[in-house]
Design a protein around this nucleic acid. Structure first.
Lengths: 347, 347
DNA sequence: CTGAAAGCGCTAACAA
DNA sequence: TTGTTAGCGCTTTCAG
């Protein structure tokens, strides 16, 4: 085997040293050229550049940031719930855009509502020296993060606020959204409005229940407990639940679905029974084709790109050193009437 | 300022050295404990662990892989077209799952059909020493990658094959898919079938045109050139194009939309004119709510999770050292009849 | 304008 | 079982 001073490419990548040797200059000079620092004669610069090309040299980012201690890695993490879900996807895209403006790459992963996975992922990203972290957390307590983040990078929570921890967050006003969606139905005279909600451990779900109830209370009403179902995990289950409700003696005349996948289940249940034009439906969260279903779906919509951008900008402000106390931005969702939510009660 | 031997945490992160000092052991011993290597007495191990906790120490991944030269970084890149698009999102999710099985994190970004961005992103990721790269490339030539990848990590192309370069790839048989979708319409007696396709520079679009034409040729037919439009960039534009076609003296009785966003445009145009139950429609690519629109949308569907998994498995086989020649997996899309594609021609 | 030496945080290869 | 030394690829510091 050749000695340590061998210049032959052993299948490995060329290093700055190799470039220096080939160009007949010192290490530091190559470093200057690669980093576009001044103080190199055009001639030498040219020679070094040529060597870089010949060897196919690429700077080693890790080594570089290791040496300049405390420097940024140009890497942020985005831990969302499910990257295949359109909400997480749109969020990731918006965060990516802001990251790009800050010359930063994005590491991402899905948490899938699993607390252990969340914790493992946070650890992994911190070990990779990310400059910042976006976290769409699971429902539980986040106090453990306090320890993880001591002297760690800034974290911005999204969609769900931190619990047991002071931290930046951008969330949607879920109480308000559910309240508006429900009120929209009540204002049209509906008196039996069903509510479907997802996992009760998730704060967004709880808030939506609260808004649903509050809208009733605003009118001195109380929802029928038989029409309020929490812990509905899936679209399929939502369809089953709606089917049961429609079989009641006094079935609901309107439905509020507290999450996008629950809306689809409700639509299916209504369509199967041919009552999609007789029972009103308002859903929380939008879908790309929601205006093309029959009838077009009325939704409470979150401005996801806006949320994502706010998250990104907050994060990079922190990365840049903004020392102000934790901020909590709350974005108002809006009601988009399309037809399904404007079906009047019978009689 | 304190000298270089200062042990006080200066707000920076604790290092392995700090842990060693606090635990009263050597650097290497800490390394052993952190990496779960054998050869440390339980007592010492305990002492070190305690110090780790006290200092909130996290191993520096970059430094670690720098030292063990040639070792994996446990990082792969996934450069897709648009992370907010459900296709890219589902793909990313599947790749992520395989990556997780290989204890690897995923760096991702959107290319947005911009050639320069693709190249910049590839460079950036290579500089970050990724173990592998998934690339959903733009339409142009990829020969430049040959240079970038000399002694670089393995690359797997997805959705679109490499051009001017030998590399692994997983693609969909777009010719076959378009042919099946078009044939489905022709078999029902349609004789005037319109075709909408996206950017002609993108190979997938070209292949779908080919399949569309081939299906006609199979029956000794030729599509009316006025009914075949390529370069349709968006849903809005698709709606406009379809509107124009419907105003012809001899309008199409069926439409084949060569991409998911073109389907939505077509649906809108048909619905606006109230002919959605009289003109047949088959779309390429599925949507989450496609079965709930009116009429339910018949599509040629790609099995995206399967594609993503194949990509991931191919990539990690290469990362593990699989030296076999480049493979090209072609996945067959399937026709999913739902209603819109089964509308018969008039008369 | 250019370069030599030191060292970022960590692990490999050896000691002891 | 534990520790010492060297050095990954790079940038900093300080000298020429």
């Amino acid at each position: 085997m050749p000695g340590p001073s061998s210049l032959s490419s052993t299948g490995d990548r060329a290093t700055m040293r190799d470039v220096a040797t080939l160009a007949g200059v010192s290490l530091k000079t190559v470093s200057r050229v690669v980093n576009d620092e001044r103080g190199v004669s055009p001639e030498v610069r040219q020679r070094v550049s040529a060597a870089v090309v010949t060897l196919g040299y690429r700077p080693n980012h890790a080594a570089s940031t290791l040496r300049r201690r405390g420097a940024r890695t140009g890497l942020v993490g985005a831990l969302l719930q499910d990257l295949s879900n359109s909400f997480s996807g749109a969020l990731l895209r918006a965060i990516e855009d802001v990251a790009r403006e800050n010359r930063t790459a994005v590491l991402t992963a899905s948490i899938d509502e699993e607390v252990d996975r969340e914790r493992d992922l946070v650890r992994d990203l911190l070990g990779r020296q990310v400059d910042g972290l976006v976290l769409m957390p699971t429902g539980r307590d986040h106090a453990y993060l306090g320890e993880e983040l001591r002297a760690g990078p800034p974290v911005v929570f999204v969609d769900r606020p931190p619990r047991g921890l002071e931290a930046d967050a951008v969330t949607v006003d879920n109480v308000l959204g559910a309240r508006r969606g429900t009120e929209h139905l009540l204002a049209q005279g509906h008196r039996r409005v069903a509510g479907l909600f997802h996992l009760p451990g998730v704060l967004t779900a709880q808030d939506r229940v609260t808004g649903f109830t509050a809208a009733h209370a605003d009118r001195g009403m109380q929802p029928d407990p038989r029409l309020v179902v929490t812990g509905v995990p899936s679209s399929v289950e939502a369809a089953r639940v709606v089917g049961e409700m429609l079989a009641l003696d006094d079935p609901p005349t309107a439905i509020f679905a507290g999450r996008n996948n629950l809306s689809t289940g409700a639509i299916r249940a209504l369509a199967e029974r041919g009552v999609q034009h007789r029972v009103a439906l308002v859903g929380f969260d939008d879908y790309p084709l929601a205006d093309l279903v029959d009838p077009p779906l009325t939704v409470v919509k979150q401005n996801v790109p806006r949320i994502g951008r706010a998250v990104g900008e907050l994060l990079f402000a922190r990365v840049a050193g903004d020392p102000s106390p934790p901020r909590h931005l709350v974005v108002e969702p809006t009601l988009v009437p399309r037809g399904s939510g404007e079906i009047p009660p019978p009689g």
